[in-house]
Amino acid sequence: MRNEKKIKTFFLLMLLAIILLSLLSLSLGDYSFNLEESLAFISGQADQGTRFILGDLRLPRILVCLLAGASLGMSGVLLQTFTRNPLADSATLGVNAGAGIVITLAISWWEISDPGLILYLPFIAMLGGLATVLVTYFISHQTGQAISPAKVIISGVTLSTILSSSMIAITGRVNQNKLTYVINWLAGKITGNNWESLALASPILLLFWLAIYSRSHKLNILSLNEELALGLGLNVKRERQLLLALASGLVAFSLSLAGNISFVGMLASHISKRFLPGDHRLTLPASMLWGALIMLLADTITRSFLIGSSIPTGIIISIIGAPYFLYLLYRTQK
């Protein structure tokens, strides 16, 4: 009973923190609004200029941060369950690089102003991310043996390096506008902060969330010893393949909105497991909340305190996440 009360308090505090940070992020920026003006906008009583800045510019960006951060947080739990490795993240498994290479190719062929780019880019990114992580899986997997966490990470990082080098070669053949778009995406600058992209991606991300959360019980079994999971009647191979597809699609759709963001999934997953027991029914939503909070906090810092610096949100997250990754690597080796 006591643990149940602590869990409810944890989720309530997380939701409150996200609401307060969203309100703060709505108010801060190149031009700051006070709390009264922000509340007037929320209640529909703001003037036209305020509605344009908050409703057309800042609110879509906040929603992108929340959606992408929550999705990346959930994917961190999935990928760590899949690999049995605390270092697993969409970047270390090659999903980011796979999505990035097809996004770069698509931008080199399409005009940036083409509505088709907004419509098809998330689906193209999903295919690229899925294809890359499948290659990573097959390189590191040996028939009849359990997955080697070290091999998965090494294969993913190696493949990411190869694909990232290929992106540089492709961008050398595009015009300046397209090159700027690709560079911004690679650096983690939010690119899908408009209502059209949100209208397309939001329902699909919601379907991914529901599909993944509905498998919480199977994820709990999958996190056990492989022989024990088989003994409990779980089709481990099929479940891993489905898990891989869901995680890759979720990440790729998020990256098409938020740019090349790394470490959010790893950070959100680890922080959640420090506060909650290892039940996926709890860690999945908790990681989503932490992911949304980390993403929105980094973006708010970028927009509010680094005005004029042109530093993308992804750089701020990497500054936070990279040292933590090295700490985990050291602790894992030890």
Rank of each mutant, 00 (worst) to 15 (best):
M167D: 05
M126K: 06
M1R: 07
A247S: 15
S166G: 14
S256R: 04
E226Y: 10
S269G: 11
F52S: 10
W109S: 10
L13H: 02
F305T: 06
G259N: 02
A247E: 10
I315L: 14
G73I: 08
T132R: 00
S214Q: 10
D114L: 00
S272L: 08
S71Q: 06
P323V: 01
L250E: 08
L200P: 00
K151A: 14
Y31M: 14
G76W: 04
A17D: 02
L206G: 13
I103R: 08
I319T: 13
I42W: 05
L219W: 09
I53N: 01
L257G: 00
Y330Q: 07
L16V: 15
L179N: 09
W209S: 15
W290E: 00
I53P: 00
G321C: 10
W110A: 14
R238C: 02
L159Q: 05
A70R: 05
R281P: 01
Q142G: 02
M14Y: 02
D47H: 06
H270Y: 03
L255N: 01
A169R: 06
G98S: 05
R58W: 02
Q241N: 06
C65I: 04
A150I: 15
P149S: 09
G73P: 15
T50W: 00
L242W: 10
I153C: 12
K6Q: 15
A169V: 14
A258V: 08
N175K: 04
L117F: 13
T9K: 12
M126F: 15
S165T: 04
S38N: 13
A99T: 07
L297V: 11
T136W: 03
R281C: 00
I7L: 07
A286G: 12
L222T: 11
L15H: 00
T161F: 11
T81I: 05
R238V: 12
L179D: 04
N175A: 02
A17I: 03
A91E: 01
R58A: 04
A97V: 04
M266T: 14
T81C: 13
L284H: 09
K334D: 08
H280G: 03
V152S: 12
L130P: 01
Y330V: 02
I139L: 09
I190D: 06
W209E: 12
S75E: 12
T104N: 07
F11D: 12
S108H: 04
S216H: 14
S197R: 11
I301A: 09
A169N: 13
M14Q: 13
M126T: 13
L26T: 04
T143F: 11
N3R: 14
N194Q: 07
Y137V: 02
G249F: 08
M74P: 03
T81W: 01
I301C: 12
N194K: 11
L23V: 06
S254D: 06
L79I: 15
F33Q: 13
